[in-house]
Design a protein around this nucleic acid. Structure first.
Lengths: 353, 353
DNA sequence: CATTATTACGGGTACGTACCCGTTTGAAAA
DNA sequence: TTTTCAAACGGGTACGTACCCGTAATAATG
């Protein structure tokens, strides 16, 4: 371990020396506070540029007693592994940046209650926060909230689902359409011809829209490869209980016994796998999300592929983007699609959500 | 933006106040320097534990003029996208931690010259470094170097290939065997019966051993699924020029026209794809690594799957592990396998190496 | 007994930046 | 002319920790 050379040739002190002004004046220029004449400001800026000066974040954060509060609004993670992972990522990011004087407040809403979301965003006092991380499951309310943030000038990051029209700092989440497209390829690679069933399982209309985007991508794959002899079928299930799903599925498959593969557009694929297991059905099965039960059926060989959407990384990256932008003043990539991860029985043990 | 409450209830000052000693004494205890009686040491330690005191890294690093030098020894990245990515990850990590007074020196050796590696490790003066990141392509020399590090007490992190016997801080890299196993599954999912060719392309004996591990994994998949009617063939190519590969491949495929799929155990899959393109051969083709040419053939549909080994993340994580361990004093996971990423024509655009 | 070494501890400054609270200056208002 | 005021700038302290240096107290040595 060597000693850091006490670098008098860098830092605000050196800038002040060169410009023949005090450190305070340099500081005013750096933070463009008023009280500096144009002439000296220009001179100092020139020196800063010339030196390639980068303020020492450590010293800066230590000296400034600034606190930054971030607000997180996501669905309840209770009994929901997907959002649990998301929250875990948020916590991980928080633990890394709390040294810099960051606070993170978390607010939760009910995934299948639009009202709960509306209630949460109603009662939050915006002016206490410097940045917001939001999972805008409910479109209309999300739009309204985004407008509010914009009006208050508070940076807003979306995770998991985007609201393209609204101006946000960034979007971090999956490319739904292309992930469906990928699923199409995976099924078609294993099944050259026959019938393929698309299953959407959801009660809420907004979440159903997300599923639809994946379905569109899935269909697009087969349109782009029209030469193959695959016929697509579709089943909507409007109840998420295992029993209901089993009944609907059973009735449908009785009618269409030649179906060779099933694509479930969300993490509910576990219910389909459960049904397959019960009736010893062997079909190609592809679904979404790295959650415990799904992985179990992956192991059992009942699910062939899972597509991962990296909820933990979404949460982590979301907080980090706020940090980079607000604290470090860095430029942030506006669109931030997660990789479309393919999880199998063979690689799940190394997977990172 | 709120103000940080000037927290007199935390930090060394508060510890000193409670223990009725000076800050200096507290500091001695924290860094277990000598000059403190057992009694006061115990008292202070009790208070530290009670308060759950965590030293402020910002202030700590600012006050201490310690510099930490890390040494990186990896193959030359010139004209080698894989190691280029690795170096990129190293640089990214460096840019994140340089504020903390870290220096990173990089040394390169020739990927297909054992002597160059020996030369590099010969001339490096160990005592200048606090940690080393090494890609031990050459086994014997790697062992020798690891012993040297151990003797000097310098933490050593392996990336890309492991030397299991040697005590290192951590290993970060692919699980070769299981990635081969995954390739087996991918091919078998698309090809239910027929012949499958395994192709190893390498000149160096040490790198060949890496390929062998993948081949073993690949074979293991078909052993575990013996009911399928797949027959495995194998071709070793001991020259990496495109012309040579083409000739060898052509001769072999003439003899075995019924081969339905080819598994290339490294990034040289591009040469096989090139050959397929030239002769309009349509077989399932699976290989390794997210490099430009491979992605090109993925797009063209000539390569079906690439398995990614995340070289950039390996480099990034390697440096970060050294940092976490040496500077932050954190515990490090010893085995750190990269995920086995499956890259396709449909998802490559979102892939992160 | 005086001298030296050793142990145990405190005072104080430095790290690089932020920002409060001055002071100076020049010009406008009285 | 004096007063007022704002603009432009400097001095100085604080952030929390590291560590040099000094000193008191005691023990060991002559």
């Amino acid at each position: 371990m060597a000693k850091k050379q006490t670098n008098s040739l860098s830092g605000v002190k050196e800038i002040a020396r060169r410009a023949k002004v005090s450190i305070a004046t340099v500081d005013r220029v750096i933070h463009n506070r008023k009280g500096v004449s144009e002439a000296t400001k220009d001179k100092i800026n020139a020196i800063i540029k010339d030196m390639g000066f980068q303020p020492n974040i450590l010293a800066s954060r230590l000296a400034s007693k600034k606190m930054n509060r971030f607000l997180v609004i996501i669905p309840q993670s209770l009994e929901n592994e997907y959002w649990e992972a998301s929250e875990k990522g948020i916590d991980r990011a928080y633990s890394e940046i709390r040294q810099y004087g960051i606070t993170v407040d978390k607010l939760f809403y009910d995934l299948d209650s639009r009202e709960s979301f509306a209630g949460v965003i109603q009662q939050v006092s915006m002016d206490a926060y410097d940045g917001v991380l939001l999972a805008p499951i409910f479109f209309d309310e999300g739009v309204r909230f985004a407008a509010l943030c914009k009006q208050q000038g508070i940076p807003l990051v979306f995770i998991n689902s985007d609201i393209p029209g609204e101006e946000s700092l960034s979007y971090i989440g999956p490319h739904l359409f292309k992930s469906g497209y990928q699923a199409g390829r995976l099924i078609n690679y294993g099944l050259k011809n026959g019938e393929v069933l698309i299953v959407n399982i959801s009660t809420e209309i907004d979440t159903y829209h997300h599923l639809l985007r994946k379905e569109q991508g899935f269909r697009a794959y087969f349109q782009d490869h029209g030469d193959v002899g695959i016929k697509l079928l579709k089943l909507d299930i409007r109840d998420t209980s295992d029993e209901f799903i089993e009944r609907e599925l059973h009735a449908y498959l009785q009618q269409h016994p030649t179906i060779g593969a099933v694509f479930v557009t969300n993490s509910k694929v576990r219910a389909v796998a459960k049904y397959f297991e019960k009736f010893r059905i062997e079909k190609i099965l592809v679904g979404y999300d790295f959650i415990r039960e799904n992985v179990h059926y992956l192991q059992e060989g009942l699910i062939d592929f899972l597509i991962g959407q990296k909820p933990e990384e979404q949460g982590y990256t979301g907080i980090m983007h706020l940090f980079q932008h607000i604290v470090m003043g860095a430029a942030i990539e506006k669109q931030n699609f997660m990789p479309i991860d393919i999880i199998t029985k063979e690689n799940y043990e190394f997977y990172r959500n």
